[in-house]
Design a protein around this nucleic acid. Structure first.
Length: 283
DNA sequence: ATTAACGTCGTT
DNA sequence: AACGACGTTAAT
């Protein structure tokens, strides 16, 4: 369905865009494909994003929007904010943490735990502005994508993503095992996480990975991590080269290209999980 | 069958 | 190195 041709669905509010072209009409027609990916001219969602962020989260979203106001520069690296406000710095800090060059999946664990409220926000206080379902320590960029998916997907930031959280998250002294399919305890118990999919889907994913590894030569197509900022993005910009050349390029929007996949695929230490899914310690 | 997108390779 | 095209894999 040509990235740009999703069917109009749901009242979803896309708030997930790098700024690009300046404005456009007020009609908010969002096109989403089967996977829930919104592909629309940036201008629309941009506009919404503006109003939304300005009114509620003030400049928080400067994290991945902002600055260069309206300039359609297509620079994937723009997720990294320029030094700015305190809030910005915090977002940058977290973001930087997660993008650690080491590529340790520890970062992924930290991210999930952080969302679950297990980790204190780095700056620690003064930031109760966003009570997203009781989950604190949300970064501007989190808000960005959460807001984007809040209406229908509710991908992240929802307590339902952490089923055990309600009764006190089991601070398992043992292992949290991160996989593209989600987070597991060492005994194989599925905890949650992953890229906006259900536990069932997590399981299926793990299964398919298992079979792929079993009959494959290990040279399996890598999958998006699902938790990095680009992965959480739900809109195609429709303006980057990948979007423009989708027909021939077969590439995902640059703004949605998984940080993990951007890194060179190199062996690293891989461990087989109880589910059969491989887990890489290093990239 | 269709669609999305990763991997690779040639070109700039 | 970045980009574009193509083959291919995986999901629906």
């Amino acid at each position: 369905m040509s990235g740009s041709g999703g069917s109009a669905q749901g009242p979803q509010t896309a708030v997930d865009l790098p700024q690009m072209t300046p404005s456009s009409p007020s009609s908010v027609v969002e096109r989403r494909n089967r996977s829930g990916i919104i592909s629309e001219p940036l201008s629309k969602s941009l506009k919404r994003s503006r109003t939304l962020t300005l009114s509620s989260a003030n400049s928080a979203n400067a994290n991945s929007h902002s600055s260069q106001a309206g300039k359609p520069s297509v620079d994937p690296s723009q997720g990294r904010p320029p030094a700015g406000s305190v809030k910005l710095d915090r977002g940058a800090l977290l973001s930087g943490l997660l993008d650690s060059p080491s590529g340790l999946h520890l970062a992924q664990a930290a991210e999930l735990l952080r969302r679950a409220g297990m980790l204190m926000p780095l700056a620690g206080t003064a930031d109760t502005a966003m009570p997203l379902g009781g989950v604190t320590g949300i970064t501007p960029s989190d808000l960005e994508s959460v807001a984007a998916s809040a209406a229908t997907d509710s991908v992240l930031g929802s307590l339902s993503d952490f089923p055990l959280l309600g009764n006190g998250f089991p601070l398992h002294p043992g292992l949290f095992i991160m996989t593209p399919a989600g987070v597991f305890l060492a005994d194989g118990t599925f905890i949650g996480g992953g890229a906006g999919i259900t536990a069932t889907e997590h399981h299926q994913q793990a299964q398919s990975e298992l079979s792929a590894v079993a009959n494959g030569n290990g040279k399996k197509k890598r999958k998006r991590c699902g938790i990095c900022e680009p992965c959480r993005r739900r809109v195609n910009c429709d303006q980057c080269s990948s979007c423009r050349n989708r027909k021939t390029g077969h590439q995902i929007c640059k703004f949605r290209k998984c940080e993990e996949l951007k890194k060179k695929a190199s062996g690293g230490m891989e461990v087989m999980l109880p589910t059969g899914a491989p887990f890489r310690w290093f990239q």
